[in-house]
């Protein structure tokens, strides 16, 4: 049985195990849970979209007790999951220059696909409802909230996360500016801030106006007010805004020079 996805970045070993089809790990999990009353929560058992962590828990529990339910027999046993499970979808994504083919529950957000299936944990899950911007990634050149995007709706798309901005050890100019200006404190919002800022400068370069623009028919200079307005979709709970704006201005001026 083939592995569901071929992820060259994955270090866990489990997801490339040809004997384990992740599509059926919900059933495996149920078998392990019901038979052995492991510490797995009912909640995680019922999650149709499985995280790598869950897969590892299942794998570990099963291996430790030498009970490995065959995926197909678990399915044949008529797991209640089978009746409610949405049809799985195959999704091709090009992420940071690498092509991936994922088999996903259609409910999987782009954020969860990146974090849980491709181990790209740069995009952060903050509010998970499109308000904080911590999940910001760049899709086909435009910044979006990956938490409100269904991965299945991005089949064939080109995604850049914070992990894809640097060229090996050379930081992207925006990353370097954030370091230089101390544009962070706890750092949780930073990957989203930086991806957002990079794409925001491209929007400005393309001549987009903002609500801070006095005459929307003009293309304004990137003042402090313009940057603040254009970055309002990225919340920083530590309130490092002054330094974030300084970092972005620095890069914007560098690009003009």
């Amino acid at each position: 049985m083939p592995a569901v996805f071929d992820d060259p970045w994955c270090a866990c070993g489990t997801c490339r195990d040809p004997g384990l089809d992740l599509r059926f790990t919900a059933s495996v999990g149920r078998a392990v849970n019901e038979g052995l009353a492991t510490a797995m929560t009912q909640n995680s058992n019922e999650r149709l979209h499985l995280t790598r962590r869950t897969v590892l828990e299942v794998g570990t529990a099963a291996a430790a007790l030498s009970v490995i339910a065959h995926p197909q027999s678990a399915r044949a046993a008529g797991s209640p999951d089978a009746a409610t499970r949405a049809d799985l979808a195959t999704v091709g994504l090009r992420v940071n220059g690498h092509s991936h083919t994922l088999t996903l529950d259609p409910r999987t957000t782009l954020l969860d696909a990146l974090r849980e299936h491709l181990a790209l944990t740069g995009p952060k899950k903050g509010c998970d409802q499109g308000q904080c911007g911590a999940c910001t990634v760049i899709v086909n050149g435009q910044r979006i909230n990956s938490c409100l995007a269904l991965a299945v709706m991005h089949d064939g798309d080109d995604v850049t996360t914070i992990e894809g901005l640097a060229r090996s050890d050379d930081l992207h100019p925006m990353q370097a500016a954030f370091v230089r200006h101390d544009g962070l404190q706890c750092g949780y919002c930073t990957p989203g801030q930086i991806c957002s800022a990079v794409a925001m400068l491209a929007e400005h370069k393309a001549g987009w106006a903002s609500y801070a623009t006095a005459d929307v028919a003009e293309v304004p200079a990137l003042s402090h007010a313009e940057i603040a307005e254009r970055m309002s979709g990225n919340i920083c709970r530590c309130s490092a805004y002054a330094n974030i704006v300084a970092a972005i201005r620095d890069v914007a001026q560098g690009e003009r020079a």
Binding site: G130, G133, T136, Q142, R143, I144, N145, L148, A149, S196, A199, M200, E203, A206, G207, W208, A209, S210, Y211, T213, D215, V216, A217, R230, M231, S232, G233, N234
Partner: peptide, 29 residues
Amino acid sequence: AAADMRVRRRYPLLAQAILAGASGQLRNK
């Protein structure tokens, strides 16, 4: 829609209203 120069020149009201809503990331989707 808010970036379109025809909208911005002829219907600035519409461009302003769109830009007043949500965030850059949300407006892109």
